[in-house]
Write a protein that binds this DNA or RNA. Structure first.
Lengths: 199, 199
DNA sequence: ATTTTTTTATTGAACGTTCAATCAATAACG
DNA sequence: CGTTATTGATTGAACGTTCAATAAAAAAAT
């Protein structure tokens, strides 16, 4: 079986298997044996390609956050008009992108989030992603309102997005992406309307 | 040392120690030995009073949710006027009560939330609490707007509340309760104002 | 008022299980 | 033939639970 150039293939395979295992039984019971079984390989291979279980978990979280960033960036690049509202809508829709919401990703995301409270390595990744969302929101709100108002609006919208993810991850049927997106978009318009009147 | 009537004392002691241990190292590394050490007792006592580690964890989650419910109920009982807005404000302030936000509780809450994705026992507790918040919000919004609008407003406010908790649990310095409360109250007023104009 | 018995509370060592990591062995490719 | 890829048995550490032993308190007996 062994062929050359297996590394990128195996890495992707194992990251995907990690999400599947976490979706199935949770991070706490996602053992290396179970992950390897999902990928159809031996347990030892994990240490070979990722240096150990922790390395694989970190790579998996990196992948999730990177996919999320890509989904947002792609929507913003595809914009035809440059209005703040369009950018903010793109950010919201990127956060509820199919690839993010579907299947194992949402549960894995929440498991990592909780876990990052006590793992410095994951915590840093989390914070970087966190700030990126907040900064992106703030920069756009800033174009139509004062600094303090923009900050407040960003806090609110960020909380709504994360709150919808959180509640979606726990809902038995999984997150209703359409409903969540609508809720976030409505909130956005209310935030924009609120300052338009006091302007 | 042994005296009669130790049961309620030990139970409280161990539940508190569980939160302290989870706050310290997370649910994954909160071993019975560590919890027992926090409480200043032997590890064996946990099985004696709670039937096992799982029983203690469930009791701890019950305590957190029950405290949260009490905090909300107390604020609502103390209301002088009966307006929907006052009730909704009381619900928000109860959710950001000192006893809930301070110290080990917030982290424990999030750890349990993530864990409940894969533990049916905890999931049921979680869902009951979840529905209670949503129903309470919906019943009050319902008094000033149509059913669908009330549902939408409840979803938004619930997402904001949970989102603020979620982000607060991960913030290094812990949740800034005052700021969070203000954000949630602002959102409430915007939700109320939005329908007041279209009424 | 003392002694004995029973009950309640607690300990901590032992046990069996589970896990991640290791590494010698093996197999295919260049 | 050497390199790369992979396996799977083994190892040692860590975990939750169990249980015989112990000690204090309460109750009963003297």
């Amino acid at each position: 079986m062994p062929k050359v150039g297996m590394e990128p293939i195996r890495r992707q395979q194992l990251i995907k298997a990690t999400m599947a295992a976490i979706d199935e039984v949770g991070l706490a019971d996602a053992t290396v044996a179970r992950i390897a079984r999902h990928a159809g390989v031996s347990a030892g291979i994990i240490s070979h390609y990722f240096g150990g279980k922790d390395g694989l978990l970190e790579a998996t979280m990196r992948q999730i956050l990177s996919d999320l960033g890509d989904a947002v960036a792609a929507r913003r690049r595809a914009l035809v008009d440059d209005s703040p509202r369009s950018h903010l809508r793109a950010i919201i829709e990127g956060n509820f992108d199919r690839s993010q919401v579907t299947g194992p990703v949402a549960k894995t995301w929440l498991d990592f989030w909780a876990s990052s409270m006590h793992r410095p390595q994951l915590s840093r990744l989390q914070q970087v992603n966190d700030r990126r969302l907040y900064s992106n929101l703030c920069a756009q709100f800033r174009r139509v309102m004062a600094r303090d108002e923009a900050r407040q609006a960003s806090r609110t919208l960020a909380a709504v997005i994360d709150g919808l993810w959180l509640r979606g991850a726990l809902t038995p049927g999984g997150l209703d992406a359409d409903s969540a997106r609508r809720t976030a978009l409505d909130t956005l318009d209310q935030l924009l309307a609120a300052t338009a009147t006091t302007d």
